[in-house]
Nucleic acid binder design. Structure first.
Lengths: 225, 225
DNA sequence: GTAATAGTGTCTGTCAGACAGTATGTG
DNA sequence: CACATACTGTCTGACAGACACTATTAC
């Protein structure tokens, strides 16, 4: 078997959140060439000595660049070709993370590099490399999974109410859902547990708080929403 | 940004088919170290000069090793860590292909290397690297997609009958399906077209032949089977 | 009491699965 | 004709969505 030169490989992470009712991505401004000063996905190289595997490398990069330990991360897709990077044939392992909108607010200032949330909807910012395509793939993955999984629950803080959760689904799907049917689905899926005794106070009937049950991965509903 | 040594990357292809009512994988016996003489997935290196992108590289490798142009191939998942290859930290872009059981029979003898179909069920052969895990991931992907996609149609030759297709679904799902309901689903999904005039002859009522409509990708049913 | 939102009960049209019945070929 | 398998029609129970009703808090 002949030895071919291995292409340069990187890891990039698409971090999505829901802010002000809109889906947003976390972007960083690049310092170095190529694409210096362009906005790009947080990413980096694999460190063979430190990283046990690809997932660990993705988690390390995310933590180093943003200070976030995300509650949900999955491998999105690999992208590789001769055009995406002017330095030659490269490939990237793209990851896909969801976080609660308020999880990053405090940490953001701590990092020296320029970091910002960008709206998915509307005028697309021009991104470095093929990152626009990677973001599009992540959004499309999220949108398709919303219909039949519990994934959007990771866009909320650890404790939340059922009306909160329903709003998240509605914002991503872009349509209203029936309250009764929605609650039936969530109850059947059995991935939530009430936080005993706790209620969210309000000047009306307060809502029960829930959290995702321990050890529950993403739940696939047997019917679509 | 410091330059880290890029890990060695490869591409491996899990080719699945249905033979004798069983799901089977295509394996090849390795010639070179590491894992010389072990059974492994067909795979190879990226050739930056030849391969436009990852998908093209996977197609080239598949064609070179087996003579197959598969009708269906998708990226499965990337696997990378420090243990899977004794040479050090490596990663592989795993692909997932489905072919009709009779598509390879003739070509197989043409290739000098030892190639064979192995049953998924029963005693698992010990595979080189982490290929057992990759095969398991591919099978699990197929099984989960069978429930709500038209994917299994690619396990059949270009022309087939609805009873053929139903048998494929039943074999993978491991349970009987209602004929009437099954045909309703396929009709709704509208990804098949009758081959005009052609019927499969038999000593009973012959079945209508169908083929997958041009330009139809994998169809997601709106309900589970 | 009113206002506001949380949470539940009920009713109805639709539809999936079960199954029986019809169609079309061979010999 | 019998037989085998392809294909279709019908009936029924279950259930999703619509929507109305009740519950619980603050003021």
């Amino acid at each position: 078997m002949a030895e071919f030169e291995s292409p340069l490989v990187t890891i990039d992470v698409v971090i999505l959140t829901l802010r002000e009712g809109q889906l947003q991505v976390l972007l960083m401004r690049r310092g170095a060439e190529p694409f210096a000063r362009w906005w790009a996905l947080p990413g980096g190289y694999i460190h063979p000595e430190e990283d046990a595997d690809l997932d660990a490398a993705a988690r390390r990069i995310l933590l180093a660049k943003t200070g976030i330990r995300t509650p949900y991360m999955e491998q999105l897709q690999a992208f590789g070709d001769g055009q995406r990077d002017p330095r030659g044939w490269t490939a990237t392992f793209a990851y896909f993370a969801l976080i609660a909108s308020d999880a990053l607010v405090l940490k953001q200032g701590a990092n020296a590099e320029e970091v910002a949330w960008w709206q998915i909807k509307g005028k697309p910012v021009e991104l470095a490399f093929d990152h626009a395509r990677i973001v599009a793939a992540a959004v499309s993955r999220l949108r398709s999974k919303v219909e039949y999984t519990s994934l959007p629950a990771h866009l909320l803080p650890p404790k939340f109410t059922l009306p909160d959760l329903q709003k998240v689904y509605e914002q991503i799907l872009g349509r209203q859902l029936d309250k009764s049917a929605f609650r039936k689905r969530m109850a059947e899926a059995a991935f939530l547990e009430p936080v005993a005794g706790e209620k969210r106070p309000a000047s009306n009937r307060p809502a029960q708080l829930y959290r995702i049950k321990r050890g529950r991965g993403t739940i696939f509903f047997d019917r679509t929403l």
